[in-house]
Structures are given as structure tokens and as C-alpha cells.
Design a protein around this nucleic acid. Structure first.
Lengths: 328, 328
DNA sequence: AGATTAATTGCATACGTATTCATAAACTTG
DNA sequence: CAAGTTTATGAATACGTATGCAATTAATCT
């Protein structure tokens, strides 16, 4: 494989040593303008490309970032994916993409990331056993949990301020005059859903507003089905807070199917502000997750930890904002 | 970086040579059961993971597949992404993900794929200069154009039979009694849109059914806007064939906004069968692209070319089928 | 110009693995 | 049991690069 052109070939053609070729391509070293030109010309002629494997082998560093995703069916994640690839590419890093179907990330799902000695790992939207992350810690590979926290505080996570957001959502609905509400949760074991539920129910409790909690799964079908059950049970509240937008769209469609007028009869509010929320047919009021800024924080953490590994931990929470449309 | 454990450390602990360790982990070589066990035990104890870089350096092979995508905003692509990652992971390959924002793929977008000596490349949904692909050919790296062809027949592409599909779509609409039609194109310079237009218009011409062609851009907003313009011009045809589903949803919403009844007043048919097409609010009649099978063909081509590079060319076209729902 | 310093270059080596070759051990077989 | 044959193992080497060190050249200063 490979075109077989290596630094030695270039060196020979340019009439210099292999070291000089290396110095030209690696940068940072001092090379005279004359030899630089000779080398670059020779490299161009032969179509030389430095072998990243040899390079990583010797520097013991890698320019790969592992990105682990689950649930690509949520339109939220393509945006995330794009943010990360673009940012990291600009910095000279390449994305190693891993998709898991398992409910909880398994060791074999991400073993390859260790094989490739990735410089950093981003785990989006996934629950995982802590043992798996420990492995990265042992190898001093920085890890960011994106949009998901774990109970143990030994990790670094980036997300949005779910607690405060859902409190404000509750407040907003109360001020709209809603007298009873429903929260439709996402996957039960996810921190995002739990936090959103917590903030919402706390605020309602503080204001003595009754509410019910229904469990669903972060999917359109889940939202649709759950809403339908609620409707058929005759339990229609004056407002739904739905744990993410894609489910909220399902809820809206279920309501529409039963000719229940939104926002007159009941109100619906989602979370994420995916593109589709703005579509005229839905016009969903929702909470915007500041994806771009979340990605930026993630990238900058990883880069700084690559430069110097400190195993810094914490939860970065970026504040989003309410996007008021026509469903409330 | 890395935990610093290498094959030699394992060998020492196990009381064997480094060669034996290598043989255990690489497989295919003959190792006695006794030493295999010793090695695996020692490796387990030390947490040894083979260094993929050293491995690739010496075998001159790599277990990386480059996946180049554009337009992640089309829900069609997450599905594609998932198919590929799952398949290749099962085969021991890892996906190097590249996302491009450029209209036409640039050399720097995929230069990293050469750096990493990827074993194969999949380019989905993107136009690109042929020079870029040539570079892969020079390095004997197999390339598949997924869901996109180029005029020159020197490449391998996998897609769906757009020509026949759009002919059948036209036929279907004619049989439904539609007397005049509109085709809303995707990005003009894409083979998919061109072929769909061709098959559609050919069949209509053969049957002497009048039609108009409107150019759009494969996005929801594009579909919405184009449809709105058509409506406002009072040019409503008895059927729309829209080059992909996401645009078709935009068209449907524009029609709904103007209270134009579908399918009574006009009909709409899309292409792709994305998940959302089945949502009750849309219930879009569309043409299913057999993504799973397309992915399978792509994977098997790449694997076979990795085993023996023949630079085989051709267009694999998988037949899809009409999914009739409520918009026709 | 001569002396001192800075910049540039080449040589040799190391990174961690797979693999050839030679050697030793374990079986087969008549 | 001896001769032959298969199987298992270790020593040594190569992959393509970065880099410390020594040597050379260029630049600067007195």
C-alpha cells in the first residue's frame, strides 16, 4: 500500500539528508530557505506524504480524536458531529468515529480508540460504565462527556444548564396560566432527562402546581405513543414539557391527530431547538441548547489537556435560552 | 502517551519472546496453547494493547476507512453513517470521519486520509474534482462514490436506479390521472438530481404529459420556498415530484400553509423514504432507497479491493421501491 | 581578518511491531 | 526406535519517521 515514497527518496532527489526532509515537514526546526525549497520541490514531484503512523510511533503522540455517538436518529447529533469535525480539522486533528448500538457503551465499542492511542475522546449522549472511562484515565487520555453527566464527579462534562433551564420552562408555563402539567421524560437512565425532570418538578412543587410524569425514550415514536396514551386516558394537561424536541414533535402530531388544539387547549414545549422545531408546521416553542458554544468548550478542554494532562474535572454548563414560538 | 506497556514487557513477564507475543495478538500464526495462555495472562495483567501505529508501519496496511460526508442536515445521512460504522466495526475497521462544507470537495479536505493511508474511502453525497480521486488511485486506495456518480466512467459508484425509479414514479402519477406535473430538483450539479429529472421527464414526454422543472437545493427550506413561489404564481400542477424527501416535506408544508389539499388538489411524491416521511402528519408517498443493501455492496467492494486491488469500476444500482402513503 | 557565536545539516538511533530464518521441540510412521 | 516431518520458538531485522549529538557552515562582532 501507499505510493511507497518516503522521506529518504525525497532526500535523495533533493540532495539532502532524510533529517532535513523531516525537519521541513514537521516544522518548528530551523531549516535554511534554500534546502526547504529543494525539499518541497522534490516532495511535490514525487508526491510525498509523511507517514502518520511512523510519525506517531516516534512522537508517541497522535492527532486523532475519538468521537463516540449513540442515537444518530436524533437530528440534534448531526449538528454536533459537524461542529466537532470542523473544529478539530481546523486544528489538524482527525475524527475517529464510533457509533454504538448498545444501551450502555461496552468495552469493545471503544477498544479501538485505545488501539489508536487517540489524543482525546468525546462521548456524546450515552451512558457508560465508569470502568470504561477509567481505562482512558490510565492512559492519560482526556475524556469529555458531552451532554451527559455521571453521578461520580470524577469526570469532565460539558452540557447545558438543564436544571435552571427546566425551572425557567416551568416558570414560563406557570405564568402562561397553566394549571396542571405533564413531563415526558427521555431515556430514564440519562442525566439529561433526570435533571430536566428535577428542575421542572421542583419549580412546580414550589408553586403548588400539580403535574404528572410519563416515561418515554427520546424518540419521535416514543413521544407520539406516550401522548396518545395520555389523550386516550383523558388525562390531557394544560401543558406538556417534553424532554427533547424530537419527542415533542411526536407529541404535537398525536395531539393534531386527535384534533386537540395547540396552544389553545394544551401547550407543548420541547428542548434542543433542532432545525425542525422551526418548521412552520410545528413552530415548536423550545429551549435552545447552545451547541456551538458547548462544542467550543469541549474542544478547548481537550486541546489543553493534550498539551498538558492535568485530569481536570468539572461540569461546564452553558446557558441556553427559551425560543418562544407558536405552541405555547 | 499510552500506558507505555509494549509487547516486550508482556514477553518478559510471560517468560517468552516478543515474537511470541506478536504471534498471539496478530493471529494466523501457530502458537502453542501453553504460551498463548501465558501471554494473554501477562497482557491482561499489564493492560497491554497492541500499538496500531507500529503495526501499520510494518504491515503497510491499515484498518481505517475514510468516510467523507457533506450535508449532514439531510436525515438520510445519519442512517448511512450508522450503516457504515456498524458494518466496518464488525470487520475490525475503524471509520475516519471527514465532513466538508465546501460545495466541491477540496484537496485539503481529504488530505488527511492520505496521511493516514486509509484502506478505503467512501464519498457520500458530494461532487468533487476528479483530480482528487486520482490521488487515491495513485496510492491504490479503493474509492466508492456513494449515491453520486461522475460522468467519467473510471470510478466505482453505488447508488439506486434513479432513472428507472423516476420513470416509475412518473408512470404512477400518470396512472393516478395527473395531467400536468412539476419536478423540483435538488442541487443542480448532482448526478442524483439530474438522473431523477431525466427519467421523470422522459416518461412524461413519452406520454405527452406536460411538466415544468423548478430548481432547488435538497433542503427543507428550499422545498418550502420553491413550492411557495409556484403557488403564488398560480402554477399549481396536479402533481409534484420532489428530488428528495426533506424538500418534499417543505413542499407539503407550503401547500398546507396555503390550504391546498393533498392529495385531492395536488399530489406530492418524494425520494429516499427517510424516517420522517412515515410520520402521520406527513405520510409522504416516496421512493425507498435501499440504504442497507447499498451499504452492503459498498462494504463488500471495499473489502474485496483491499484484499486484492483490481481498480474495478462500474455503477452498482440497487433497485428501490415505491412506498405509497397518503400524499398521492 | 580573526575570533566567537549562531544557524544549519548529517549521522545514528529509537519508537513497537511483524516476519524471515534458523533452530529446537514435538509428533509420525514404518 | 530411528528417520523424517510437522510445529513452536527466539534472534535479528525492517518499516518511516523524529531527534540528540557532533560537525560543518554562515553570521556577527571586535
Amino acid at each position: 500500500m501507499s505510493n511507497g515514497i518516503n522521506a529518504r527518496d525525497v532526500a535523495k532527489l533533493a540532495g539532502v539528508s532524510q533529517s532535513s526532509v523531516s525537519r521541513v515537514f514537521f516544522g518548528g526546526a530551523s531549516v535554511s530557505e534554500k534546502t526547504r525549497k529543494k525539499v518541497l520541490a522534490a516532495a511535490e514531484e514525487l508526491g510525498y506524504v509523511p507517514n502518520e503512523f511512523a510519525r506517531s510511533l516516534i512522537t508517541n503522540k497522535t492527532r486523532l480524536i475519538g468521537l463516540v455517538m449513540k442515537g444518530v436518529h436524533n437530528p440534534f447529533y448531526p449538528q454536533v458531529l459537524q461542529e466537532f469535525t470542523t473544529h478539530f480539522n481546523e486544528l489538524g486533528y482527525t475524527i475517529l468515529f464510533v457509533h454504538t448500538n448498545h444501551d450502555e457503551i461496552q468495552k469493545e465499542d471503544i477498544e479501538m480508540l485505545l488501539h489508536y492511542h487517540v489524543a482525546g475522546v468525546i462521548i456524546t449522549d450515552a451512558t457508560l460504565s465508569l470502568k470504561v472511562i477509567e481505562e482512558f484515565k490510565n492512559n492519560k487520555i482526556p475524556v469529555v462527556l458531552f451532554n451527559r453527566k455521571v453521578e461520580e464527579p470524577n469526570f469532565f462534562s460539558v452540557g447545558t444548564n438543564n436544571l435552571e433551564a427546566s425551572r425557567q420552562i416551568a416558570k414560563f408555563l406557570i405564568e402562561k396560566g397553566c394549571k396542571d402539567m405533564a413531563y415526558i421524560s427521555g431515556a430514564r437512565n440519562t442525566s439529561t432527562s433526570i435533571e430536566r425532570e428535577k428542575g421542572f418538578s421542583e419549580m412546580l412543587a414550589e408553586n403548588k402546581v400539580p403535574y404528572k410524569i410519563y416515561h418515554s425514550d427520546y424518540s419521535y415514536d416514543g413521544g407520539f405513543k406516550t401522548a396518545k396514551e395520555i389523550i386516550q386516558a383523558g388525562d390531557i394537561p394544560s401543558a406538556f414539557f417534553v424532554a427533547n424536541d424530537i419527542m415533542a414533535l411526536g407529541v404535537l402530531d398525536a395531539l393534531r391527530e386527535q384534533s386537540i388544539d395547540v396552544p389553545a387547549k394544551t401547550k407543548v414545549i420541547g428542548f434542543d431547538n433542532i432545525e425542525m422545531a422551526a418548521w412552520p408546521i410545528y413552530n415548536l416553542t423550545t429551549w435552545e441548547q447552545p451547541i456551538a458554544q458547548m462544542a467550543k468548550e469541549t474542544v478547548s478542554y481537550i486541546i489543553s489537556e493534550i498539551e498538558e494532562y492535568t485530569d481536570r474535572i468539572g461540569n461546564i454548563e452553558i446557558n441556553g435560552e427559551l425560543i418562544e414560538r407558536k405552541t405555547t
